[in-house]
Amino acid sequence: MGDIGLWVAGLTGATAVLASWVTSRGHTRAAQLQAEISAAAQDEARRRELRRASYLAFLEQAHLMGVEYRHTPSILSTEDPGQRRARLEEHRARLREVFGPFRHTCQVATVHARSGQVIEACDGVFAASRTVYMALGDIADGVTEPAVFYTAIDHYWAAVGDLGKAVRLEES
């Protein structure tokens, strides 16, 4: 009987070691999965925050362009064509200064966008801004009437509104 007792003790010990090893592997794999899931969640949160920040930066720059556009009506009301042209050229120079950050934030926002709607909306704001700028050049050159500016600026603000809507839809 002594051999059977030794045999049972050995088998029991081996079973305990094997069960311990299997449990250890399971806990290790569970910890790895938990770490991977946590890292993925943190990465997604970081991307979401970058996307949100890029949208906000572009919307802020769009509104800063709008602040510059608000100076335009007083310039357009200048009676003397020569003086109006000079003031419009100064105004367009200022718009070019503001345009650099505007363009940069537009590009960053489109890079981070998840949906085609946001990309199209960013492009729409960018194109509308160009239309306003070109209209001011045509007005300065006497090619077109000042009323063209008001139509272009209405399109610009509509495009900014469309961008806000697209961002809200994407974030929901």
Rank of each mutant, 00 (worst) to 15 (best):
Y156M: 09
D138M: 10
Y156A: 06
D162W: 04
G142W: 01
G137M: 14
D141P: 11
D141T: 08
V143F: 12
A158N: 08
I139M: 06
G137N: 08
V148G: 09
D141F: 13
G142C: 03
F149H: 12
G137D: 13
G161S: 05
V148T: 14
T144F: 00
A140V: 04
A147C: 12
D154G: 02
Y156W: 11
G161I: 07
V160H: 02
V160E: 03
D162Y: 04
L136S: 09
Y156Q: 02
Y150C: 07
W157T: 00
D138Y: 03
V148D: 14
G137L: 13
Y150K: 10
A140M: 01
T151K: 10
W157I: 00
D141S: 14
V148P: 09
A140D: 04
I153R: 05
P146H: 06
T151V: 10
G142L: 03
V143I: 15
G161F: 01
G161E: 09
Y156V: 07
A158D: 13
D154S: 00
D141A: 15
A159S: 03
L136C: 10
I153S: 05
K165H: 07
D162E: 11
A152Y: 01
I153F: 09
G164D: 02
V143M: 15
A158R: 01
A152K: 03
I139V: 10
G164Q: 06
K165A: 06
Y150F: 07
D141R: 15
V148K: 13
Y150A: 07
E145V: 06
V143Y: 13
T144N: 02
G142V: 02
T151R: 14
D138V: 11
G137C: 11
K165T: 07
P146I: 13
I139C: 07
A140I: 03
G142P: 01
T151Y: 11
G164K: 07
H155M: 10
Y150H: 12
K165P: 03
A152R: 10
H155F: 09
T144L: 06
P146W: 05
A140Y: 00
G137E: 14
G137A: 05
A159L: 00
V148R: 14
E145R: 14
